Simulated scan of single mutants.
Amino acid sequence: MLAAQRKDLMLARLAGDGRIVAKDFAAEFHVSEDSIRRDLRELAEAGLCQRVYGGALPVSPAVADYSTRQTVAVDSKTRVAATAAALIEPGSAVILDGGTTALAVARALPPELEATVITHSPTIAAALGEHPSIELFMIGGRIFKHSMVASGAAAVEAAQAITADLFLVGVTGVHHEAGLTTGDADEAAMKRALSRRAGETYVLASSEKLGAASRYPVLPLHDITAVITDAKATSRAVQDLEIAGVRILGAT
């Protein structure tokens, strides 16, 4: 079998099964594991899969630049945002992550809501700057432009001084085995730091992020309260998460 044929089969397997195990794939098609690992490495370099120990997972589609992502899955993000915004009770304090879905949450907050929002995203802060009833706190640091958030040591240190009821976190991948993942190590560390400062952590996950993975782990699934998604309850990714013990909040 030619390498190009193997790669096509790998991509089809990723789409159908949500995972490739290199050892099993090699045995099934009677090729060496070294050949499979080389194929996976080349697919990963082309941005077509995310390599993990023993094989590969589907790559997250949420890797484009910030301005481009604002035009992707807009209706999906709007549904997720509306469900997330409804979780914020009057008088509560919420940490709102950066990213395009979090921006949709900020825009979905009703003008009469009196609450405290803590964010490390200048974009979120700007969106809430004219909200009549939101008390706004901003965490500073190095700006990671992909998600327009502050990260790095200074931001993580500043996060230790806050406490909140909820953390609404955005990630680029939600997978039943890999957990929550994102594409930058500093951003992942900042998300972990913020999650530790909140009573509950809810994941903002439009449907294209389910079943996908990025390079850097954020949190294991047992550390989150629920995943908010508009993916269909019958989808394999949702069912896999539920089998893993994850609570799903459907956004309709």
Rank of each mutant, 00 (worst) to 15 (best):
Y53R: 10
G54M: 08
G55E: 00
G55W: 00
G55P: 00
G55K: 00
L57G: 00
L57Y: 01
S60E: 00
V63S: 15
Y66T: 02
T68G: 05
T68I: 06
R69D: 02
V72C: 02
V74N: 12
D75F: 01
D75H: 04
S76W: 13
K77T: 03
K77Y: 10
T78C: 14
V80Q: 12
A81Q: 10
A82Y: 06
T83N: 06
T83L: 05
A84T: 11
A85T: 11
A85C: 05
L87P: 12
I88L: 10
I88Q: 15
E89F: 05
E89S: 12
P90V: 00
S92Q: 15
A93L: 05
V94G: 11
V94H: 15
V94P: 15
I95W: 03
I95G: 04
G98Q: 10
G99F: 07
T100Y: 08
T101R: 07
L103C: 06
L109G: 06
L109V: 03
P110I: 03
P110D: 14
P110G: 06
E112K: 03
L113T: 14
L113D: 13
E114H: 12
A115Q: 06
A115P: 01
A115H: 04
I118Q: 05
T119E: 06
T119F: 07
T119C: 08
H120R: 09
H120L: 09
S121E: 09
P122N: 07
T123P: 04
T123V: 08
A125S: 10
A125R: 12
A125P: 09
A126L: 11
A127H: 06
A127P: 00
L128S: 03
L128K: 07
G129M: 07
E130I: 09
H131I: 10
P132I: 12
P132A: 11
S133R: 14
I134T: 13
L136I: 13
F137E: 08
F137A: 05
G140L: 05
G140S: 10
G140M: 06
I143W: 02
F144Q: 14
F144I: 07
F144L: 10
F144P: 03
K145A: 02
S147L: 11
V149K: 02
V149E: 12
A150C: 10
S151N: 13
S151W: 04
S151A: 15
A154S: 13
A155T: 05
E157H: 04
E157T: 10
A158N: 04
Q160N: 08
Q160S: 11
A161C: 05
A161V: 08
I162K: 03
I162G: 01
T163E: 04
D165I: 02
D165K: 10
F167L: 14
L168I: 07
V169S: 14
G170A: 14
G170M: 11
V171H: 02
H175N: 15
H175L: 06
E177W: 09
A178M: 01
A178L: 11
A178Y: 00
G183V: 00
G183K: 08
D186M: 13
A188W: 03
A189E: 12
M190N: 02
M190D: 04
K191V: 02
K191E: 05
A193M: 04
A193L: 07
A193C: 02
S195M: 08
R196D: 04
R196Q: 08
R197N: 09
A198T: 03
A198H: 04
A198E: 05
G199T: 00
G199A: 06
